[in-house]
Design a protein around this nucleic acid. Structure first.
Lengths: 343, 343
DNA sequence: GTTAGCACTCGAACTTTTTGAGTGCTAATC
DNA sequence: GATTAGCACTCAAAAAGTTCGAGTGCTAAC
């Protein structure tokens, strides 16, 4: 596995990859000698390319075409050839400008961020909201809407609001609702949502509650409120990937769109980068999600509070401008973390 | 304009349209005589089709191809030929089953509805949330998150929740926030959001407020909360229209996706059907939104309360199964209205 | 080790041919 | 007079055939 690549081979591989990224066409030996100032003849390059093919870094779609980098080549490129530049001032400016999103609630900010990622990268932007579970409970509220409908509102310390319409079996007076909320707010102060969930369950078992209908009711209501935790995903800029020549084929397109419509697969992938932190790169087939064939994902984590971590990133074709995308993702993640910092 | 169409011509036009809807191919005289049991020879049908072409109801893409219905023909078809069947029991069942969305908040319900429309029609589903302005104010709440960040929550009678993070210039004590909320809740009881907006403005002018900093602050905060009114649109099932052969061309696809990414154009169109009520049909070019070329929109209105009206519908190619889609839209709208009824 | 030279390959692009669904018109038929 | 059979004509799409050129691998010379 430990391929010893000479400096020259690396330069040539780099050239192939960069040409391919730019043109999406198989690249041949002549093209390289012309565009990249290597003092080598096409024939020599050909020999080297032949070696690279042997190593599984290049393939040719057919005998008389140029060569295409494999996923393995991209990996190598990303890990040890690519030098990540700093973000151009223009880009930095633009990102920063568009990050002024005062007054919007978290969901809106994240959606806007996803859009931002998509438009600056010109691929798809994706942002996963932090798992609710890590949020810190702040307050709970019950609002009576009509005789048997109650709106429950759950506020976390980082400003996330979760609300849920509940049908109560029988009418509950507004004063009782307030009392319930107070009771719960006292009990749950400072816990994370995950802890809240446990606490509510254990509380419901306890003796003293069993004989106090109001408390029982309060617990039931709050339990219902807190149930759902489908981490939200904001995926924007799908139209961008229609632009990519490798997806010109309608059937492939459809496949991709269908895949992203059910967001579960994406969730898996994003969850995985959650634990690692920092910028991460998933290249095509590596993420044994066959569906991702031909696509790569560049992610970074961001924070909305001390312990609440989300993931954002860019999805594009494997043949993606990594050198450009990586700093975009990185910078955006940092900026958003700062923006959402709990002061 | 008042074309007098013989019964026979109508039958033939109907046949052309239905064949075209089924196959997306230009239909010729022979095809019709074969599939639709008209006791006529191809030659006769040809003559009639020629007349229909004269009237601007059919066109042929080129001399030696069959004919295609024009938008005008679709209009005629929808208005006076098509008989809208009742929804098949299966479909009704499915829609009803998927409408069990207890406990979800309004946004989720509407999104799910959009998805439902898309999957039962196999085109795109679209749901526009009612304009906030028509909602009836129910309650407002300020939650202090940190020293200078306040979360404002606005609850409407129909269960819509609007929330907004506000940065306050200086720290405000939680008790003051509660007092402010109480004051506002008293003042704004029973008004619609639109009225609330006016009221707040006029109140801010008034003498007595000018000297009461706390009231002034309360008004400012609530004003900020209520600002945004970008009617939300839920558009689902884009992948479905990739299936339609008329959009196989990538360039066209991209155009469409871009159009729907900015939702403003759609908003216009939906707003228009808002006032009319009942099932409405927009056919391609009629809605002088050039972008809609080749697409039709079937809408109906639904209600989330006495006065809050939203629009939902299906977007598909002009060549859409109107007979199937219309009852789907109609039935779904009714069901959702019932579901969201304020008891 | 590098390079020039050359025969060979094979998809893409362009032409040409074939095919067949469809038309419009005219004259015969009901 | 409306309907239909017959026939010449049209034209896009599919199939078959050409040409072109970028690219390769190999060998022999530098």
């Amino acid at each position: 596995m430990e391929e010893q690549l000479s400096e020259r081979s690396k330069r040539i591989l780099e050239a192939v990859i960069e040409d391919y990224i730019a043109t999406a066409e198989p690249v041949g030996s002549r093209t390289i000698t012309r565009s990249h100032a290597l003092a080598l003849s096409p024939a020599t390059v050909r020999n080297v390319m032949s070696d690279l093919e042997e190593m599984g870094l290049l393939t040719s779609p057919h005998t008389s075409a140029g060569r295409i980098p494999t996923d393995k080549a991209y990996r190598l490129y990303v890990n040890s050839i690519l030098e990540v530049k700093n973000l151009a001032r223009d880009n930095r400016e633009e990102i920063r400008r568009r990050c002024r999103m005062a007054g919007k609630d978290l969901a809106e900010v994240l959606k806007e961020t996803s859009r931002l990622l998509s438009s600056t990268s010109s691929y798809m932007g994706v942002v996963m909201a932090p798992h609710l579970g890590a949020n810190v409970f702040h307050q709970m509220e019950f609002v009576k809407l009509s005789s048997r409908r109650v709106l429950a509102i759950l506020v976390s310390q980082n400003g996330t609001v979760q609300n849920r319409l509940l049908e109560t079996g029988e009418e509950i007076a507004q004063e009782d609702l307030v009392r319930m909320a107070n009771y719960l707010n006292g009990m749950l102060q400072g816990l994370t949502i995950a802890q809240v969930r446990e606490r509510l369950l254990s509380e419901m078992q306890s003796e003293k509650v069993r004989y106090d209908t109001m408390m029982a009711r309060a617990l039931t209501l709050s339990q219902q409120t807190i149930q759902a935790d489908g981490a939200e995903i904001f995926l924007e800029g799908q139209a961008n990937i229609l632009e990519q020549p490798e997806f010109a084929d309608t059937a492939k397109m459809r496949e991709i769109f269908r895949t992203f419509e059910k967001k579960s697969m994406l969730l898996d992938l994003l969850d995985r980068s959650l634990s690692a932190g920092g910028v991460q790169i998933f290249i095509g087939s590596e993420s044994n999600l066959l569906k991702m064939e031909g696509m790569s994902l560049v992610t970074s984590t961001y924070m909305t509070g001390k312990d609440t971590v989300g993931v954002l990133g860019v999805i594009g074709p494997t043949r993606m401008g990594y050198g450009r995308v990586i700093p975009i993702v990185d910078y955006t993640a940092k900026l958003i973390s700062r923006l959402l910092e709990v002061e």
